[in-house]
């Protein structure tokens, strides 16, 4: 029960930073609330205070810079999906975010919340990680930038300090990458991913006129304690450059081996591993054909 529970509503980022620097009890941020309220209901000791950051306008902007896009942590999934440059060039991100929950959830839930919740099944994380996104973490006196890949330390666990907040997600511009995202869930909508794969590929023309792969990023969701990059499969594809049947098959085999899934109430280890390979194969086919 929420006895002696506090809800604080800072009006600005500065106020929020002040609050978290001085608060003396375990707290959580309330951005969209779609994770935090569910958890609090299941487990009242999840937090003793909520800091409502949902009204802080400065966190809710998307900005275009010279070589990056900066997504405020309070940007709602719905807003991200409507942002034209993403629709144009970040297909993997759009595919993933449009699969999150339902329209109702996407109208409330934020990108910062998806990252802050640190679920290995968080669907926006894979594409962001594949695009080498970074997060800006601020406290009252500090400001640091951490690669998203280094941000998570386990299920629900991150490097965020108690007096820090995620302010931004910095997404490098990557016009040359083609990307895609696929997942398997227990049903077609409002489902938590059993496994998800993001693939981003860059191509260059070979001197002989054929297409060569010159950039590969693969991220796997729900198959390890955190979302991970599949570095071995990435390296293999990059070295081989051409996507022959045999190369693709081997990459799929490698990616299945890189996954470290568990058996739980949603699925089992073997299936999850193998599906990483299947989904990667599907994405390679899709991206190679789409060109």
């Amino acid at each position: 029960m929420l006895r002696n529970f506090k809800v604080l509503m800072p009006a600005s980022l500065n106020e929020a930073l002040y609050v978290i620097n001085n608060i003396d009890r375990p707290f959580r941020f309330l951005a969209g609330g779609t994770d935090v309220l569910v958890r609090l209901k299941d487990n009242p000791s999840y937090a003793q205070a909520l800091i409502d950051i949902s009204k802080i306008g400065e966190l809710a902007k998307i900005e275009e810079h010279k070589s990056t896009f900066v997504i405020g942590s309070g940007v709602r999934h719905e807003a991200l999906l409507a942002y034209a440059p993403f629709i144009e060039n970040y297909n993997g991100l759009i595919e993933a975010v449009s699969a999150i929950g339902s329209p109702q959830i996407r109208a409330l839930a934020t990108v910062g919340g998806n990252i802050g919740n640190a679920s290995p099944a968080g669907d926006s994380i894979g594409p962001l990680m594949a695009f080498d996104a970074e997060v800006e973490l601020r406290s009252q006196d500090t400001n640091r930038i951490v690669k998203l890949e280094d941000f998570f330390t386990g299920p629900g666990k991150t490097v965020l300090k108690h007096n820090e907040i995620i302010t931004k997600i910095i997404l490098p511009k990557s016009d040359s990458l083609k990307s895609g995202w696929k997942r398997l869930g227990q049903r077609r909508a409002v489902a938590i991913s059993k496994v998800s794969v993001t693939l981003a590929l860059g191509f260059a023309k070979h001197s002989n006129g054929s297409d060569r792969v010159n950039d590969v990023r693969i991220a796997l969701g729900a198959v390890a304690p955190t979302v991970i990059r599949a570095r071995k499969a990435e390296k293999f594809l990059l070295e081989n450059q051409t996507l022959t049947k045999a190369v693709v098959k081997e990459a799929c085999r490698l990616v299945a081996k890189e996954a470290r899934p568990i058996t739980d109430i949603r699925s089992n280890t073997e299936y999850r591993s193998e599906m990483c390979g299947v989904l990667l194969g599907d994405l390679i086919e899709k991206l190679a054909c789409a060109r």
Binding site: D42, Q186, R187, R188, A189, V190, A191, I192, I265
Partner: peptide, 25 residues
């Protein structure tokens, strides 16, 4: 719909784990 129970304890005690079809299914 897969109700999972272990040693006499039902594990799928919520709508995110006991999954029923949506209109899309």
């Amino acid at each position: 719909e897969n109700m999972v129970s272990e040693k006499g304890h039902i594990k799928t005690l919520g709508l995110s784990t006991y999954v029923i079809p949506t209109t899309k299914d």
